[in-house]
């Protein structure tokens, strides 16, 4: 049963009509909006926001691709058109603070929109979760039934190396009563899942191995039961990697938001 229906997800348009201003805009992203697996992460983030009493809103049908994959592919026109349209929408609602469900949206909004006139405080959802736990707005019940479980965190490139966010996801998961184990390549030295640079949207170039298989191998080597990540694209790549090794029964790929939402019994 999905309890998301009990949570009303307000749009900016509705908020504005009601004369209200949200604390934070939740930027869902394309994967979070349309990909069936990623939608579950979106819902987990919504549950966390709701439960912690954060006054938030989404753009809904007014949200559009940030332009990240276009820019990484080299299509700057496509990117800037998207950016300018999004900035008009965001500025129209006088948005000050944004939380994203995706490191690619996070990076683009945070680093690449300012030069085009869009200036916002942008955080990634793992940073928000860390803050909510720290400020005790979000409390985990016990540790969420992760006893005896091993979790390993795969650093998304656009969260980690691109923006030096390594601690937030780890510290958010500290409260879980699971054992956090690191892969041999982690943090600054983490290996890409293979999806970045718009690779997600095309066939890989010719090689002798798939990158996601190489990376999932690292994760499986840790004997972890759960591969945690903070990016819907990493999630897809790692899930496919687990399938490649036929380990679906033993190893689950979960977003940090899903782990926390489940531990908080939301």
């Amino acid at each position: 049963m999905s309890d998301i229906e009990r949570i009303k997800v307000p749009t900016m348009a509705e908020m504005m009509a009601a004369g209200e201003i949200p604390e934070i805009l939740f930027w869902v992203g394309c994967a979070g909006s349309f990909d069936d697996r990623a939608k579950k992460i979106t819902k987990a983030i919504v549950k966390i926001l709701h439960n912690a009493g954060v006054k938030f809103a989404v753009l809904g049908a007014e949200e559009s691709c940030t332009g990240d994959p276009a820019k990484r592919a080299g299509n700057e026109f496509n990117f800037q058109m998207q950016a300018m349209m999004n900035i008009q929408v965001l500025d129209g609602y006088e948005i000050k603070k944004i939380v994203t469900g995706c490191p690619h949206c996070f990076n683009t909004l945070k680093n690449e929109y300012p030069e085009l006139g869009g200036n916002y405080e942008v955080i990634h959802h793992t940073q928000l979760i860390q803050d909510l736990i720290k400020s005790e707005k979000l409390t985990l019940k016990g540790g969420g039934g992760f006893k005896g479980k091993k979790i390993t965190f795969h650093d998304p490139c656009y969260l980690g190396r691109a923006n030096d966010v390594y601690e937030a996801p780890r510290s958010a998961m500290e409260k879980l009563d699971a054992e956090l184990v690191e892969m041999k390549r982690c943090k600054q030295n983490g290996l890409c899942c293979g999806a970045g640079g718009a690779q997600m949207f095309k066939e890989a170039e010719k090689g002798d191995k798939e990158i996601n298989v190489e990376r999932t191998g690292d994760a499986i080597d840790t004997q972890a039961n759960i591969i945690a990540t903070g990016c819907p694209f990493c999630n897809t790549m790692m899930t496919d990697g687990v399938k490649h090794f036929e380990k679906e029964a033993e190893v689950k790929v979960m977003d940090v938001a899903e782990l926390i939402a489940s531990a908080a019994d939301l």
Binding site: V28, C30, G32, S33, T42, S64, M200, F201
Partner: peptide, 14 residues
């Protein structure tokens, strides 16, 4: 407004 062929109007269906 998305890298896949989904209608922008459906962005909040989730």
């Amino acid at each position: 407004g998305a890298p896949w062929q989904f209608a922008q109007a459906d962005r909040l269906n989730w």
